[in-house]
Simulated assay, not measured.
Amino acid sequence: MNDSKNATWLGIDVGGANLKAAHSDGQARTSPFAVWKEPKRLAEAIAELTALFPPFDRVAATMTAELCDCYATKREGVLAIVDAVSRAVPGREPIYWGTDGRFHDVDAVRSRPLIAAASNWVALAAVSARLVDGRSAILIDVGSTTTDLIPVADGLVAARGRTDTERLQTGELVYAGVGRTPVCALAAELPFQGKPTGLAAELFATTRDVYLMLGDHAPVPDDRGTADGRPAVPEFARDRLARMVGADRDGCSEADARGLATAADRVLLDRLVQSARRACEATIGGPKVALVSGSGEFLARRVASELVGPSGEVVAMGDLWGAAASDAACAHALVVLARELLENQDASAG
């Protein structure tokens, strides 16, 4: 390892639908990339993202994309991702954060692949836990696809689960977010024009359309990564939501679409609050502080308010680190942890 105190770091978080990276100078970026559609192009996509940053000496990485169904097993996925990262950053030996709360070199991960599987939340939770002065807290990281709900006690991560399956069982992981979640996965029916209305079990609309209609997501006319391949703007979000109740724009006004979106948002909010309470009751009881981050930080803030109440405190990573770093919070946390590792090694050597 390069023990120079001036070494610059890049943290890389390889998700199934998004690649995220953060630089030790504070910059952070998120790039959509569907790993399951183009697994052979993963190294190229990572290289394209890293090329947008200033030069860097070292790389710390983590992942969740090993669960993509283009890989037969998570073990196969981890190994494929490790190879892709190495090809994307030639000449730099990446280190990987593990679910044991430590960094591991490439050889160690290749011998024990599952140690690096779905470990990004551990990095973010470890860094976040330092911000609450030993008080009971919960980390709420809402992304496009999933939500992490991690209890913190005495400045330490108090999660009961480590694997995705364990975390789904404890309520510490909810497979729902503010972008890619199909609306039909939120509820069997929603109120429409004043009546309970069954929802089509089809990928007609996602939560991205919900939050486009509600104004929480900014329109992106050039982005066609939507359910129907049309632009990510409110006009077409209205069409997509209308189809969820068997209607179209002729039978679903803007007000009707906003009503559907408001109802879908409430269902998701309630689900996250319920899971968070379940995770906390088994570990820390009622949290005094909530730490919020992610592309869905706006929703995380609302979940936090319901959990800690008016007497509690909400700490937003967007306020501390900036919006881009909050979106790429796990990658940002990797940089913090990697720099500390290097400093500790230098101190030991000295």
Rank of each mutant, 00 (worst) to 15 (best):
M1F: 07
D3C: 01
K5G: 14
W9M: 07
G11P: 05
G15M: 12
G16N: 10
A17P: 02
N18D: 08
L19G: 07
A21H: 01
H23S: 05
Q27H: 11
R29E: 12
R29W: 03
A34M: 15
V35M: 11
E38N: 15
E48L: 13
F56H: 12
D57R: 11
V59K: 10
A60F: 09
A61E: 03
T62Q: 05
C70R: 08
T73W: 09
K74F: 04
R75W: 00
V78M: 03
A80N: 07
A80W: 02
V85H: 08
S86H: 13
R87F: 02
P90Q: 12
G91E: 01
G91L: 12
T99F: 08
R102Y: 03
H104T: 01
R110P: 00
R110D: 00
A117V: 04
W121R: 05
L131C: 00
V132E: 00
R135H: 09
R135Q: 14
A137Y: 08
A137T: 06
L149S: 10
D154L: 12
D154Q: 14
V157L: 04
A158R: 05
R160Y: 01
R162H: 13
T165M: 14
Q169P: 00
E172C: 06
C184T: 10
L190E: 00
G194R: 13
P196C: 07
G198R: 15
L199Q: 02
A200W: 06
T207V: 10
L212R: 07
L214M: 09
A218H: 09
T226H: 04
A227W: 08
A232E: 07
P234K: 07
E235I: 06
E235L: 14
R238M: 03
R240G: 04
C252Y: 03
A255N: 01
A255G: 03
T262R: 14
A263T: 06
A264T: 05
L268H: 03
L268C: 13
R271Y: 04
A276N: 06
A276C: 14
E281H: 12
E281V: 11
S295L: 13
G296R: 08
A300L: 08
A304G: 13
A304N: 04
G312R: 01
W321C: 08
G322H: 09
A323T: 11
A324S: 15
S326A: 11
D327F: 06
A328C: 01
C330L: 04
R339C: 09
N344Y: 07
A347V: 14
